[in-house]
Design a protein around this nucleic acid. Sequence first.
DNA 1: CACACTTTGTGAAATAATTCACAAGGTGTC
DNA 2: GACACCTTGTGAATTATTTCACAAAGTGTG
Lengths: 209, 209
Amino acid sequence: MKKKIPDKTVQRLSVYYRCLYFLSQQGTGEISSKSLADLLEMKPDQVRKDLSYFGKFGKRGSGYYVPDLVQQIAKILGLEHGRKVAVVGMGNLGTALAAYKGFEVLGFNVVATFDVSPQKIGKKIRGVMCYGMKDLNKVIKEKNIEMALLTVPPEVVQEVTSAIVAAGIKAILNFSSVTLNVPKGVKASDVDLASELKSLSYFMTTSNR
Amino acid sequence: MKKKIPDKTVQRLSVYYRCLYFLSQQGTGEISSKSLADLLEMKPDQVRKDLSYFGKFGKRGSGYYVPDLVQQIAKILGLEHGRKVAVVGMGNLGTALAAYKGFEVLGFNVVATFDVSPQKIGKKIRGVMCYGMKDLNKVIKEKNIEMALLTVPPEVVQEVTSAIVAAGIKAILNFSSVTLNVPKGVKASDVDLASELKSLSYFMTTSNR
DNA sequence: CACACTTTGTGAAATAATTCACAAGGTGTC
DNA sequence: GACACCTTGTGAATTATTTCACAAAGTGTG
Ligand SMILES: NC(=O)c1ccc[n+]([C@@H]2O[C@H](COP(=O)([O-])OP(=O)(O)OC[C@H]3O[C@@H](n4cnc5c(N)ncnc54)[C@H](O)[C@@H]3O)[C@@H](O)[C@H]2O)c1
Ligand SMILES: NC(=O)c1ccc[n+]([C@@H]2O[C@H](COP(=O)([O-])OP(=O)(O)OC[C@H]3O[C@@H](n4cnc5c(N)ncnc54)[C@H](O)[C@@H]3O)[C@@H](O)[C@H]2O)c1
């Protein structure tokens, strides 16, 4: 029964979640794959196919019951119980991320931040303490932190990665443009803004939609 | 002769560029698709196939001459002459982006920032002035700005998008999790950190590499 | 309850992307 | 210059993803 689920499907699941969460807040009861697809500018077939990888959540004739579907997707994505997140590297970007309120509603709670600079250590952002790197192990284990947003300078990325993996971090969102080397069992993913800009630039020069 | 070039290929081109640029700085002369692929943890076939969409840049027996290839890719991506960029919405994230030095070396120059808040207007970050939204048209036209990093609150994203498109912006990198509505001829692309986190969370629960 | 309409879930078909495999060149050594 | 060894560029094969198309079910109206 183990059919492999495309990465693309998982990514789209995140998008569905955002939209459905919003709809559930609005009090929407049921929605058809058609309406959801319209909202997201995609095809209904795609929506149904994606959901069908994980089960049968809909009802023929009427569609999907939004509150239930939100729950189901949250479960699939592992968002039901909230995930504890650390920000490592409290520079410009790290500070912005730590200050951002938008992650919380999705169940991602920044519960600690880390830096090497004595100027940063001991400061609080939104009530969250900035620890020194020597407390990495202790704090990550104590607070049971699973994910890290990695915003340190490129030169130290690999070294810091090793340290946080050793401390028990299981997933890393990496903002430097350095390819991360992580052991099996740890998932890393890159946010490469420079590459995004370059792609945009390409499409500007060719100007095909 | 118009074979369609996959989006994925363009994205990877950005990655090759970053790596090759770095290598050229190091003084590397030639590199084989194999070595480049190893560096990026991918297959040589993929590298060659991607490059072959745009021309024949290599030499059999020895590989690609790095300085030339960097040039060629820069040209393909439209990076030769530099692109002027504006940051719109100088909150936490916008400020971090405007302060970032890493875009410049790639030919992306932040030459203006915008906000509505009187507290932000008139301030300078890295020597770049923050203008009010009423100056949008004037400044974008005067400075010939083509791209925008959009970091305003979700509620006003669509409204602000319309304004900057009207002012002449041709490409937008959108950081809100709101799907942008842009006219044909304008390219928009989303950086959705929340979705990235959700995907990571999924892979953590299933823990398949 | 019959019938006209919706909508899901899913194999099968169509498209798209990646990987293979190899001919055609190039390099270097003796 | 002959031989052993690399490396590119690219059709063809393979694999992945999307789209199609339709049976099976649910809704609602009179
Ligand atoms: N700021 C941006 O908009 C932006 C955009 C794209 C990519 N990035 C990338 O994100 C990363 C951070 O960017 P930034 O602009 O916030 O840089 P920054 O210099 O403002 O912040 C880096 C922080 O990391 C801390 N640090 C340094 N060494 C450390 C270590 N060994 N352990 C823990 N902390 C350490 C520093 O004290 C500093 O606070 C960089 O890799 C950069 O390339 C940033
Ligand atoms: N900060 C983050 O780490 C983060 C992460 C993910 C997504 N985002 C998204 O990025 C956007 C910005 O986030 P932020 O944390 O920087 O928010 P912020 O509130 O700190 O900044 C928003 C800025 O936009 C300005 N603004 C408001 N209305 C405007 C208008 N009509 N025209 C021009 N400027 C206007 C505000 O004055 C403010 O300076 C949001 O859409 C947010 O959802 C932020």
